[in-house]
Amino acid sequence: MKKNEVPQDQASTYAGQHKLMYAVDEKGDYTGVPSSGWEVESNATRDALNAINRDRLSAWERAKHGETSPLEFHMYDRRMDLSLLAQTVGLFQWRVRRHLRPAIFAELSDSLLERYCEALGLSREQLQSLPETPPSE
């Protein structure tokens, strides 16, 4: 990649920041060049975020209707999935999956709730409730 080929696509994912790229100058030597983003990269980032967001909105809807526990919403809201949340709290996935059932989540012990609060960075009240309105983004 030549210096003048370093993309400057003003990616929203960079929030005005620049990343450092390495590119070749006129003399054939490498130099660091700040880039404001590459559309190819930011599209991939945004697709990944959209995929998480779809799960997040669907979990909010289902939790609102009592079909899943608020835990599922908070998991996606923290950009986690089942395997990552299980790893973070140190439980098998099948146990976390059980805790997504509203009846079982409602009966969860203090120590397990504490572990979920810690993993998700939420207070007890936040973990056990849902935001009033469907989350934006």
Binding site: S12, T13, Y14, A15, T45, R46, R79
Partner: peptide, 8 residues
């Protein structure tokens, strides 16, 4: 970190 770059 910009919000859209925050991943685990």
């Amino acid at each position: 970190f910009p919000d859209e770059m925050r991943f685990h």
